[in-house]
Amino acid sequence: MRLSFSASCKQKQLLVNFPGLNDMDPFITRRRKDKVVVVAGATGTGKSRLSIDLATRFPAEVVNSDKMQVYKGLDIVTNKVTEEECCGVPHHLLGIVDPNVDFTAADFRHHASLAVESIVRRGRLPIIAGGSNSYIKTLVKDDIDFQSKYECCFLWVDVSLPILQSFVSDRVDRMVEAGLVDEVRKLFNPKADYTSGIRRAIGVPEMDPFLRAELSSTANEETRAMILEAAIHEIKANTCKLARYQLQNILSLQNQFQCSMYRLDATEVFLKHGNQADEAWENLVAGPSTMIIGEFLYEDDFMAMAATPASPSVITAASVLGTATPAVAAATH
Rank of each mutant, 00 (worst) to 15 (best):
T82Y: 03
E83V: 09
E84G: 07
C87L: 03
V89I: 10
G95M: 02
A105R: 10
A106P: 08
R109F: 03
S113A: 11
A115E: 12
I119A: 08
V120E: 05
V120R: 08
V120P: 10
R121F: 02
G123S: 08
G123I: 07
L125F: 00
P126Q: 00
G130A: 02
S132H: 07
K141S: 15
D145S: 15
Q147E: 13
E151K: 15
E151D: 15
W156A: 09
S160H: 08
I163T: 15
V168P: 02
D170Q: 14
M175T: 07
V176I: 11
E177W: 03
E177D: 14
A178M: 10
A178Y: 10
L180P: 06
V181N: 00
V181L: 01
D182F: 00
D182I: 01
E183W: 01
K186Q: 13
K186M: 09
K186P: 02
N189S: 13
N189R: 12
P190C: 03
P190N: 04
K191F: 12
A192P: 06
Y194T: 01
T195C: 03
G197E: 03
A201F: 00
V204C: 06
V204A: 02
E206I: 04
P209C: 05
R212L: 09
R212V: 01
R212W: 02
E214C: 15
S216W: 05
S217G: 15
T218I: 13
N220W: 00
E221V: 13
E222L: 07
T223A: 14
R224W: 02
A225W: 06
